[in-house]
Design a protein around this nucleic acid. Structure first.
Lengths: 225, 225
DNA sequence: ATTAATTTTTAGATTAATCTAAATAGTATT
DNA sequence: AATACTATTTAGATTAATCTAAAAATTAAT
């Protein structure tokens, strides 16, 4: 009954998962088409196929939702993706902004044994290099309390766990001012007129970041004021 | 012009490489069909496609030969396959008889940077866990002088570098008598009546192996008598 | 509650990779 | 060189994943 899914089917399940946040909301054809870089017609075809396999719920004109089997598969792919990202960064020395496309391929390798051994080899990490939680074998992951710097009070201290944006220019900018995953950030002040924020990175002298950067930089709080 | 090959196309190139030993002999449709577990008709279709892409030479009824571009691709896939096998055995702790199917998938991951970094991470190995040589980036590999134990003179000493047979039972038998890749084997005597051979494994007390085992166990010579 | 705009679905084609069954070419045998 | 056998190729279908263009349903706006 576990008929072996194609890469494409797996990618659709993953996309539906990501687009339906908590997993309950139904995902409409158009947004799925955009997310998969394809046409609504193609999405419609695929969504019917996945519904027939009892992986998603689907009714005409009402969008798609993951069923338990589909959700389990989606979370397993995400687990594999994030474990491979840890491997690429920690073991092979890739930068955290270079690993996504490779992990996108590696996540489809089929071998439960491989993932068990990789997990062990990496020391059972709970977060990927972007700060996203890694689901365990049962699809359960620790939800991290996190917020953008722009949303936090002056005086807050936290650790950079994610960047909300894939833009290479932004990622490179962060690199150039010394911000990377795991950096300790203290929020010193906020300029009301333009939303820029002064921060201290890893206890170094204060520096300014623009509103845009502050909005895209996610940290987990370790102290609040 | 490097139009991005499908997994299937890559696998055909690899199969043609393996079936044409030194790379010069032409591979006929039927043996390729058997090797790919498909029909001669399918092979015929694919062979035409690959010829059109100038990866192989092909003339009706005369079989296929790799052209330089195709050979380079085949050797690169073999390089990736063997590097991943080293990773799976050395780093993840797989046994050498468990890694083939996983490496078969991993070999198709596309990222030259990944392979460069993996190679470095593994310490630039020249052999895979089965004792097969790993081609370098230019497709060049050190040819190892090797022979089956059944073919060697009494008194010869060598290192186990390969098993000629994929049979799980044989591989498990070897494990049970303590023979693994890298084991030092000294050939003590040969029984003419049944072809069995007495050997010393890693300088331990002598043991007998059957003719069949002796025929499938490849070693590289370090000393001859 | 019509009309307009948007979203979704259908219908009909296309491409890669495969198949079966039939036809053809090549090789071996007498 | 005719026959038998084997290997190879062709013809015609099939399946997954996709597309474009057109039709239908839903939602929003007047």
């Amino acid at each position: 009954m576990s008929s072996e899914l194609s890469f494409t089917e797996e990618n659709y399940l993953k996309a539906i998962y990501h687009l339906s946040a908590d997993g309950a909301e139904s995902v409409n054809t158009n947004s799925l088409a955009e997310s998969m870089s394809t046409t609504p017609a193609s999405v419609n075809d695929m969504v019917k196929r996945l519904a027939q396999k009892n992986l998603i719920g689907y009714q005409k004109y009402k969008g798609a939702t993951l069923l338990s089997r589909g959700k389990k598969i989606a979370l397993n792919i995400i687990r594999k993706h994030r474990l491979w990202e840890v491997f690429l960064v920690e073991k092979l020395g890739f930068k955290w902004d270079e690993v996504h496309d490779i992990a996108e391929q590696l996540e489809h390798i089929k071998s439960p044994d491989l993932i068990k051994k990789l997990d062990k080899f990496l020391g059972y990490p709970t977060m990927d290099p972007h700060g996203d939680p890694i689901p365990n074998e049962d699809g359960i992951m620790k939800e991290t309390v996190r917020a953008a710097i722009s949303e936090l009070q002056i005086g807050s201290i936290g650790i950079v766990v994610a960047v909300n944006n894939d833009d290479t220019l932004l990622l490179q900018h962060l690199d150039s001012i010394g911000i990377k995953l795991g950096s300790k950030i203290q929020i010193l002040d906020r300029m009301d007129f333009d939303g820029s924020v002064s921060i201290s990175i890893d206890s170094n002298p204060k520096q300014f970041i623009s509103k845009t950067v502050a909005e895209n930089l996610m940290i987990t709080l370790t102290e609040t004021k």
